[in-house]
Design a protein around this nucleic acid. Sequence first.
DNA 1: AAGGTAAGCAACCGCCAGCGC
DNA 2: TGCGCTGGCGGTTGCTTACCT
Length: 256
Amino acid sequence: MGRSPCCSKVGLKRGPWSTKEDTLLTNFIHQNGEGQWRSLPKKAGLLRCGKSCRLRWMNYLRPGIVRGNITEDEEDLIVRLHGLLGNRWSLIAGRLPGRTDNEIKNYWNTHLLKKLKTAGIQPKPHTHFPKPTKKTRLKKTRPTKAVTLTVTQTDHPPKVKVYLPKPIRVSPALPRSDSYDSLASGASNSDASHAAEKVEWPPLFELAEGNYPAGEVEEDFLLGGGFILPLLSRSDSMSSDVSMLEKVYDEYLRLL
DNA sequence: AAGGTAAGCAACCGCCAGCGC
DNA sequence: TGCGCTGGCGGTTGCTTACCT
């Protein structure tokens, strides 16, 4: 197969983007749409690698991108999803409207790791499902296209053709609170009555590893190697929390 | 005020999977 | 069926800024 050269580095600009470059890229995409990243720089008059253009667009110029000020809700969700999904930044970002995988990844590495360590929590990748190593990376999904899924278990048919939606990039137009609440309550987006239910998240950093009352921690999470989250079943809100995570987990399995 | 260090984050890199020919 | 192209992902780098001495 051979790795295709991303771009000839010769003569291409690197480093931070200027306002002019941003404008050129934005205008071009507004007129011609996304895609064709390789040929885009030339057509748009940019001395940039196509990859670089895509990254700039996806992470900063795309409409609906929210920059900075990650709220406590979002932070909470990131930590929980990370416990569930591991370093699947794109999947986690898909749950946070307007946030990009790069931003979440940076936020995790600079803020949350520190915070979790301070709280005595050792974040470990979840091992319920294969970690996306080079060999077992998550099959990508594209909208309305047939995707061949390889099932690793031997007692299953080896390949199944299914139609999968593009993974869960929640519409930026959707108010964050709506998305969050519907997730937390385990309701579909269309279920307004459920979406109205507010869920109080348990305090995340108050409980350090080892401080859990016996029998109240979700055992699967511990056995699975996930770092400990306060998945306690003390109240309705707690069970909503668990059900939300289960929902995300189910969704994840479907994507696999 | 100057120099050193740490933190934050934008951007790059390498790799992989899917698709079309 | 194999090859090349393309898009996308996660890990890492290195520049910039803030803070400290």
